[in-house]
Design a protein around this nucleic acid. Structure first.
Lengths: 352, 352
DNA sequence: GTTAGCACTCTTTGATGGTGAGTGCTAACT
DNA sequence: AGTTAGCACTCACCATCAAAGAGTGCTAAC
């Protein structure tokens, strides 16, 4: 029994180069066909030098090692979550191929560029490119500082309040103002407001205005509206803003030909909390969650590939792709890298 | 043969009150259960005074008249598109019940209100309330007139250009400006621009700026950007802006338990042209397209219920619900009425 | 260490027969 | 005449069963 642990007996249980090649071949084939892959397939399509029997032996070992499994005893093998994990890890350690950079950029240029818009078109571009579900998360920005406030006249009695923050986040809202304020008067108010409030966080603006409005009788109305908006912005930028696109792409994949499964998947995407639960905290590089790592029963056979992008002020957002565990990770990571870079670029531009 | 057309022979083919009641009962039952309904069901649940045999005779007549059909010879009956049409027409001629007004309004109030946002939250509210797919169309506005242009300083070298039109449509974009323009200088430019351009349509603004920029050397950059934006806005507001929400609700209904059907449905929603093809031109009241009236093979067993809402300037947008032909039209129409009114209210507010 | 051969397993597919819901028709009833 | 009971008939649905095919594990030979 003691030599059950000897080198010879262990031999079959160690990962060697050939085993790895076979495993990758199985993964590759399964990713494309979604059909359990048999030894003969590998023998003919990938390792033509080896016979199916040899492959069979190796696959048997790989199964014992936990990288493959059989849906039933006489079907081919399919990769386990552990196999995908290995596969992804090997991808991430090497460099990733970037080929689709051009088409990615094309997707962006035609569109209006403002924070929200950018986030949405990024999601839509990403889902179209990958044919999976794309998620883009706007960074939380609890410490946004106001850099400019301006009132733009609309009709008499109403004006558009524009707030610009250092992160480049722009928000505007229509407010009611006293009817005898013309364009110049509004501008004068804007200047005063900006000089007093610039550099403060949204939270501080809310507080400051509560005090300020006591002293200025006439503009009380305006101050109230601004305070409202500031606190609303603070709330909004403190919460996560999410853009999801291409959620129905999931229907293209046979693992979701069961409508109930598809519905479960889609309903997770609708539930902000659940969605956030498996999107990683901001961090460098790529994060890949596979199967149980997602932490949700409904997502037990899914995977999520995420990366982060930067906007001004040290804030980072998250962008990712969600699909069945059987995904072409290499391609996804390549696309995601480009999209992440494009986002960093565009957000920078908007923010500057 | 001539008296084959006599009153007696025709008798069974005329719609009388009892036939109508039975037809409505079949529709009602089928709408809720999605199962072909048999004579016995009607006899027990609806027309308890009549025996199943009598119902059977009437249903047979109704089938001959084209209001009912049998999926196969010994199944119950299901309503035809013609039946839904009759049903909807009778609903529309009477008043509609509005019960859910409160919950509709609640849905709106928490949200940011700006044109685009309003349209989107309307779609989302509508789909959540009805559990069907909701579509909201922003009105085309080819004749929008600029009422105000203003440059708001951001960092040095860039400014936010805000354009306000008479329809209340607000658009803003970051543009680069000469670095030695401070807040006051930008305001001065804004005043000049507004005074020269106010009242013109976006198209005219584009043209005017092409000329104007020849004379003013320094601000050429700014003018170019404005011209760009104006033409972009003109293009955008000339095109239809569509918000679709709850498209996956379709999966809740058994007629779409076939994934291929669901996919076909969803892909229509993604194709702007197809989507627009069955949304009615602006018109008063409710429009209901049923089955073949949709004009798309993929939508042959669907229905769309639409109504319109008004924004300032005589423009009207469209809001609608899409689902299987088997829909609780009464409820849908009620909800749609409230949403339409709410939209008219909110858009008015934004626009004023 | 690799491969050919073979028995075995288990899904898939198609055919078969029974069951039940629902109909149409006829004859009797009001 | 309109309504109802009764009955034969049809057809989807379901379970059962057998044949086919794909793929494996094991053994023996190379």
């Amino acid at each position: 029994m003691a030599d059950g642990r000897s080198r010879a007996a262990q031999k079959g249980r160690e990962m060697d180069d050939r085993k790895l090649r076979i495993l990758l071949a199985v993964i590759d084939d399964y990713v494309h066909t979604a059909v359990p892959v048999g030894s003969r397939t590998i023998s003919r399509k990938y390792e033509t030098a080896l016979s199916s029997a040899t492959i069979r032996n190796e696959m048997s070992d790989l199964e014992e090692m936990g990288f493959l499994e059989q849906p039933h005893v006489s079907a081919g093998r399919i990769p386990t979550m552990k196999a995908y994990r290995l596969y992804v890890d090997s991808l991430l350690s090497g460099g990733t191929q970037v080929e689709e950079a051009d088409s990615v950029r094309e997707f962006f240029f035609d569109r209006v560029r403002q924070m929200q818009d950018v986030v949405e078109s990024a999601a839509s571009a990403l889902s179209e490119l990958t044919r999976y579900t794309a998620v883009v998360l706007m960074p939380k920005q609890l410490d946004l500082k106001v850099s400019c406030l301006q009132l733009v006249p609309m009709n008499t009695g109403s004006a558009l309040l524009v707030v610009i923050t250092d992160g480049g986040v722009i928000r505007n809202q229509v407010i009611r103002v006293s009817e005898n304020l013309d364009s110049d008067a509004l501008y004068a108010i804007s200047k005063v407001l900006t000089s007093r409030l610039a550099g403060r966080t949204l939270q501080q603006v809310t507080e400051a205005l509560a005090i300020y409005s006591r002293y200025s009788g006439a503009d009380q109305e305006v101050c109230g509206a601004i305070a409202d908006m500031a606190s609303q912005m603070a709330r909004q930028t403190g919460t996560d803003t999410i853009a999801v696109s291409g959620s129905h792409n999931i229907l293209n994949y046979p693992e979701y030909s069961d409508v109930d499964k598809a519905r479960a998947f889609l309903s997770v995407l609708e539930t902000k909390d659940k969605l956030l639960s498996f999107l990683p905290e901001e961090r460098e590089g790529f994060t890949v969650r596979i199967g149980p790592e997602m932490g949700l029963r409904e997502m037990a056979d899914c995977a999520a590939v995420c990366t982060s992008y930067r906007i001004g002020g040290g804030h980072t957002g998250t962008v990712g792709v969600i699909g069945p565990a059987r995904m072409p990770y290499g391609r996804i990571i390549g696309i995601l890298e480009t999209v992440g870079e494009a986002l960093t670029g565009l957000m920078g531009e908007t923010a500057r």
